[in-house]
Amino acid sequence: MSAEAPRVLMAGESALTVEFGETIDPTLNARVGALDAALAAADLAGVVEAVPTYRSLTVHYDPEVISFAGLSRRLLALAAHPGEAPAARRWRVPACYDPPFDEDTAEVAQALGLTRGQVAALHAGARYRVYMYGFAPGYLFLGGLPAALDISRRPTPRPPVPPGALLIAGGQALIASVSMPTGWRMIGRTPSVLFDPAREPMAQARIGDEIVFEPVDAARFAELSARRAGLSPAGG
């Protein structure tokens, strides 16, 4: 069966959204990535920026250069024959699940009927798809969280988490890029700097890439943190 045709939604006077569906699904996300790549390759006059999400692509444009109708037609044509999205890469991310980085692990373990060690092992043992950046610059949203770690968000936001915090909630995993309050639950932290405005590219992982976590102890975390290193490619 052929994929459902996307729909175009107006998002103000200078943006539109191409929506592929309503679920968190790798196939939908791949279609988003393919359109994002096709749009970049087309280099359309008037397009300012494209923002991929779980299941849609928002395109900001200059209405004095290209109209909503004209851009919609071009995007739907690209979506019909987008070509392939960039090949996925796999990144290895060191992750420390020891104190003081496991602030919410005990609560998560109790709520889910697990031990603290099981929470860390389940999180580290999965492979995650990079679905989108959102909420704050560089905040990395991941799919692939084991069902056993499916837990709701906190009823009230917790105090600010540090950059690199490993967060879970609502069947999703997230890596924080900046310090801020959140309703997500912190079960670890990575020393890797995943987002740096002074670096090119600012964010290394692309939509569709794969993340694997590598557990490290507190001493190794401190050593890696001092280097302020980015992501490292993972093996096969």
Rank of each mutant, 00 (worst) to 15 (best):
A77D: 15
R89F: 08
L39V: 06
E49Y: 10
V47G: 00
R89N: 10
A77W: 13
A42S: 15
F68S: 00
L57R: 05
A37H: 02
A40V: 10
A40D: 15
N29Q: 13
D43E: 11
V47L: 10
A87M: 07
L76N: 02
T58A: 12
S67W: 06
G83T: 13
T58V: 08
R89P: 04
H60C: 10
V48M: 04
V51C: 05
T53V: 05
N29C: 14
L57Q: 04
V59I: 09
G46V: 03
E64D: 11
P82K: 02
A30T: 13
V32A: 07
A87D: 12
A88S: 07
A40K: 11
E84A: 15
D36E: 15
R73E: 06
L35D: 05
A85K: 10
D43S: 14
L71M: 05
R73P: 04
A45Y: 03
A80V: 06
N29W: 02
T53W: 05
F68L: 01
A77S: 10
A37K: 06
L44H: 02
E49F: 09
P63F: 03
G70E: 00
L44F: 00
A79N: 08
A88F: 10
P52R: 15
T58S: 14
R31T: 04
E84T: 12
A45I: 00
E49M: 07
V65T: 14
E84R: 12
H81L: 11
L39K: 15
L35S: 08
V47A: 14
F68Y: 11
P86I: 13
S72E: 05
H60P: 09
G83M: 12
G46Q: 06
A38T: 08
A79F: 07
R73Q: 15
S72A: 11
I66W: 02
P86D: 01
A30P: 05
A69P: 00
V51N: 05
R74G: 00
E49P: 07
L71R: 00
L75S: 02
A80D: 07
F68E: 01
L76K: 04
L71A: 04
A38L: 09
L39Y: 09
A87R: 15
L75A: 01
G33V: 01
H60M: 12
R89L: 12
A88L: 08
V48A: 07
N29T: 12
V65Y: 03
G33P: 03
G83R: 13
V32F: 03
D36F: 10
G33Y: 09
P86L: 14
A88K: 10
V47R: 04
L44R: 09
